[in-house]
Design a protein around this nucleic acid. Structure first.
Lengths: 230, 230
DNA sequence: GTCTATAGCACGATAGAC
DNA sequence: GTCTATCGTGCTATAGAC
């Protein structure tokens, strides 16, 4: 009857997993950390549903059972990774700005530069974070809400100073959201659309990276122009 | 032994599915179209892996087996939705621009306005499209490549005229990618981060929508400023 | 074309030896 | 702490009646 493959939906994932000589990780990293590292990589790249615990175990070079020994289950592990990623993602924005007494332009330069550096190291991060904060993502919608609250409880130094700055001098009639969206969009969007852009302009990874480096200096200038009195 | 629930990972999805009186869709819509509509909704919201064929069937008000009757399997159905979404997503950019002889500013206005209208109607679209074009997404990486090629085969009227315009007059030393990334980022990013922004600024859906409407007129102005000679 | 029933497998989680 | 072996179930896909 030629049945053979009733549920072949997984052929994709299995293929690349074939053998792999169990990554020669140094033993000085604890097993728990190895699992988290593997989970971070896979969850961040493929999302919750598309990642299988078996893959995490293999990537970490340990047995599947250990995953449930250290972290209770897949979901718990995901939430840990999720929260760490969120902190990384928005942490950049609010580190050490309080009390630094910078000008607006200096702030923009500082944040843009730090953010782009971080994104060059973690290109998949914005997608992961944003996607899991939007509704209807991997987790229960209620869960996203919890994270959003937790985010809000961290004081947004940059957001606040940014909004304040706008209210003070620049552009009276325009909602601060506009400028924040522009700023973050200019920084983050190219990473979210990197494949599309690299394809469009026929760029190598190196060339793309170089352009992103350029943006560290360009973006603050653009922002100043945009925020000038209308 | 208290086993009972060996794989409780699904509690989330099952809950909301409880009964639902089989949506009173009008009969003049073909079954095939109903399935596609349901699939578009769910795939776009939750992605490939997190969407179950059972949910699609229920959402469409038909039996599961019909899904495989019309479309061969889950993956085939996904590819159809994927491609239609891509066309919607980048189609806006290149409709009727050829031979219209607009100024740069007019082009920016036209595209920004059309794009934002489309995004207001399909807020989940950018996430879906971008996420599935980046590597390591729902589908095999090779698949993304196919789509990228297909995209490139559609002539990018706007991209071309945009890049050309930049080369002609404005800003000689800056790579066109920068401006395209800025433009698309300003348009698309707020939708990708809508939850975060609405939460941050304490906005209702209505208020958010209104701000997006504002951006139709603001973005072209900002772009002109940015692209002015440095 | 549309349904019910079910095959068959892959997954997450656990038991239990060491 | 770490492993192997296995359970129970959710899933996709199909067979087959109507």
């Amino acid at each position: 009857m030629e049945r053979k493959a009733a549920a072949p939906a997984r052929k994709t994932a299995k293929k690349s997993a074939a053998k792999k000589p169990r990554a020669p990780k140094s033993k000085d990293v604890s097993t728990e950390e190895r699992i988290k590292e593997a989970a971070r990589k896979l969850f961040t790249q493929k999302g919750f549903a598309a990642t299988r615990t078996r893959d995490i175990a293999e990537e970490a070079g340990i047995n599947l059972a250990l995953l449930n020994y250290y972290f209770r289950n897949k979901e718990k592990l995901f939430e840990i990774i999720m929260w760490e990623n969120i902190q990384l993602f928005i942490g950049v924005i609010m580190q050490n700005l309080e009390g630094k007494d910078m000008s607006l332009e200096q702030m923009l330069e500082y944040v843009a530069s730090a953010y782009i550096d971080m994104l060059l190291k973690n290109p998949d991060l914005p997608f992961f974070v944003l996607s899991n904060l939007q509704s209807g993502a991997a987790l229960d919608t209620a869960k996203s809400g919890v994270f959003l609250e937790r985010i809000d409880n961290l004081r947004h130094t940059f957001f606040n100073r940014f909004a304040e700055e706008i209210r003070k001098g620049h552009v009276p009639d325009i909602h601060p959201l506009h400028f924040l969206a522009n700023f973050m969009g200019m920084i983050i969007f190219p990473f979210v659309a990197s494949r599309l852009l690299m394809n469009r302009f026929d760029l190598s990874q190196q060339e793309f990276k170089k352009l992103m480096e350029e943006r560290k200096e360009l973006i603050p200038g653009w922002m100043i122009r945009i925020m000038g009195a209308q």
